[in-house]
Design a protein around this nucleic acid. Structure first.
Lengths: 245, 245
DNA sequence: CGGTTACTTGAGGCGCGTCAACTTCTGTGG
DNA sequence: CCACAGAAGTTGACGCGCCTCAAGTAACCG
């Protein structure tokens, strides 16, 4: 098994070769998932945390009436889910959106890693904080913006994250997310998502290409979504100050 | 200065008397705020983190058109904001909702604390995770529930948190949050918040009492809000597993 | 008192939901 | 090669939850 070339962790802290080695050593095995498979369920005691090697994952909450609400997406290089092992209990579900491959780090190995490599613990903490910052932005996005702005904003967010992870090829990237998934994330109906997507296409901002997405007009899309990337804490856009200066 | 008897930190990890002492030692001074004062602003580099000693605080995001969207509340015993110092930059604002008093821990003292007392670092990490869990629940709340359910849910959340912090007296507690604030948090108009509040009162679920709030019918309110408290990770409701077993 | 802030009440309108029918597109098996 | 089923997306009609605007009340305060 090979780790993704750009771990999200490394946007938050410098890892030494030794750190990377320890991380790799903590992986017990890999796991392949079909699309739409639950990986961990709400209120379970998680037995591991997972690093996304391929595909796309999401976190979701189950609501009354069998509906689900997606509260976050995860791409290659992200950890999902660190919260569960640390708190001892899941407050949400984690599932695949596409075929996916994951590296499994069992809880005991994770805890050993935290003890032995403080730099990794700091990086993990920062990754959970960055996820929390995204969650806060989603609250404002779902609550404060129109359907059109909301979807434009999300596409900007995902585009920037995917670029930062080195997963875009000349402005386009894999996009396994269906309208129904987007609807569940952005609190819209899939019907309305479809209409908004057409408008974004007609305006020449984005273009869907067979399971991939191309952003044609970054400034236009960012304006449409009132998007500013500061909350993503991407390396490059902001100086990532060391935890202990 | 005296620390609140129940720090939220202590719901997540056992602190030794020595830990508490170090925490107290890291406080440089206290700060008193009028209602509606900004404490830290978006994109600032924070110079300290703050422990709420009195009053209520909120985090909010500024949206286009001067609107603001509240993305979290903080009560006595909570830290606000640990994210900023750790990441080196704020992704949101922190402000007072009522007259408030805060203990100030300057960033350098905070970092020293993290290095010297690993147990405190773990507790801090858990507090940020618990805040993130609340943020995720808010996404689902704002996105997936009606105005009536949404407000009932929020009242349950705040009630439980306030009780867990030991700040309720026979079922009632200080409630400085105006309808306008609730509206900004729950993505509603203050007009509609007012109507929902009346309905909740008429149904005998809650009762406003001069800057205080009393929950008259817990089961009723929880049903109305489809509320389950697991995501709060309150001591007592779930076993808080030690980080390193 | 008059000004200010919080909350209430009512009327009218719009964004987005729901429902339902239709269109692709894909994969499967005869 | 076509028949069929199922999943994803599209289109249109209609309705409702909540918004906006606007006027009014109540409490507090200099």
């Amino acid at each position: 098994m090979v780790l993704p070339s750009r771990l999200r962790l490394e946007q938050f802290a410098q890892l030494s070769p030794q750190d990377r080695q320890s991380l790799l050593g903590a992986v017990s095995h890999t796991l392949e998932l079909e699309p739409d498979c639950d990986l961990i369920s709400q209120e379970e005691r998680p037995t591991a945390c997972y690093l996304v090697l391929e595909g796309m994952m999401c976190r979701y909450k189950s609501l009354q009436g069998g509906r689900r609400h997606i509260v976050g997406f995860h791409i290659v290089g992200d950890f999902c889910d660190l919260n569960g092992p640390v708190m001892g209990r899941m407050d949400h579900n984690v599932a695949s959106l596409s075929p996916a491959k994951l590296a499994v780090i069992p809880t005991p190995a994770l805890f050993r890693l935290l003890e032995q490599r403080p730099q990794i613990e700091h990086a993990f903490w920062k990754e959970t904080i960055a996820d929390a910052a995204i969650a806060r932005e989603w609250i404002a996005n779902v609550g404060g913006r129109s359907a059109y702005e909301r979807i434009a904003h999300l596409l900007c967010e995902m585009g920037r994250r995917i670029e930062a992870a080195g997963l875009a090829q000349d402005g386009a990237f894999d996009w396994p997310i269906r309208h129904q998934d987007l609807a569940e994330a952005m609190a819209l109906s899939s019907v309305h998502v479809s209409q908004v997507f057409q408008r974004l296409s007609n305006e020449g901002l984005v273009k869907g290409e067979e399971g991939r997405l191309r952003i044609l007009d970054w400034p236009g899309l960012e304006a449409a979504g009132q998007f500013r990337s500061h909350y993503l804490f991407l390396a490059g856009t902001a100086v990532a100050e060391p935890l202990v200066p």
